[in-house]
């Protein structure tokens, strides 16, 4: 039974979620929790906070599945954005800022260069090498914009580059990513 359920397609999973089938939550969790948790943990830099947020994210997916439009984005993109937004909201909240010192660019670089996974996971073999293929300035840019929720203007200010340059740099950073991951 379990195997059969896990073999269902993304379409079937979405339909089951929209029908409020609670078993579908388990499947969703098994398929995507490590991805979503990875994103959240990378942003909030605390596993404990990340677990609370992962729960919130799953609840939000469950409640808002009706607003998901398969025509606009893949399920994983939609869910990833929910996770990212919640986590970014968290680190931008006053209470969170007060509890943590803001980190500097150098720290981002350090985070990028350290092993992205704690604990052994076969999926992660070679991940570090892949990430390291990305030029450091590109990594920092994606880190700021994608994982820290910096706007174009904030990024421009943070990195001391003109506004227009942010656009062209993020373009080349993501092009770089596309080359690595396809």
């Amino acid at each position: 039974m379990k195997n059969r359920l896990q073999e269902i397609t993304e379409e079937q999973l979405i339909a089951a979620l929209k029908n409020k089938n609670r078993e579908a939550v388990g499947i969703l969790y098994d398929k995507y929790s490590s991805l979503l948790f990875g994103i959240i943990a990378r942003i909030v830099k605390s596993d404990e906070t990340a677990e609370d947020l992962l729960q919130e994210v799953i609840v939000k997916i469950w409640k808002n599945i009706d607003s998901y439009d398969a025509g606009k984005a893949k399920l994983v993109t939609w869910m990833g954005n929910i996770a990212r937004n919640l986590a970014i909201d968290k680190i931008r909240s006053k209470e969170y800022k007060n509890s943590r010192q803001n980190q500097d660019i150098e720290d981002y670089v350090n985070i990028i260069e350290e092993n992205p996974s704690s604990g052994f996971n076969p999926e992660h073999i070679g991940v570090k090498e892949m990430v390291e293929k990305l030029a450091p300035d590109h990594r920092v840019l994606i880190e700021l914009v994608y994982f820290q929720g910096f706007t174009q203007a904030e990024t421009s200010e943070k990195l001391g580059i003109p506004l227009g340059t942010v656009k062209t740099r993020i373009r080349s950073a993501i092009n770089n990513l596309r080359n690595i991951y396809t």
Binding site: S33, S34, K74, T77, G80, V127, Y146
Partner: peptide, 20 residues
């Protein structure tokens, strides 16, 4: 979007099993 998701997937991490 796919590229960004793939990149995100590099940071996959399992939460504690009890969380499920």
């Amino acid at each position: 979007q796919n590229a960004l998701v793939s990149y995100s997937a590099s940071f996959k991490k399992n939460p504690r099993p009890e969380l499920r």
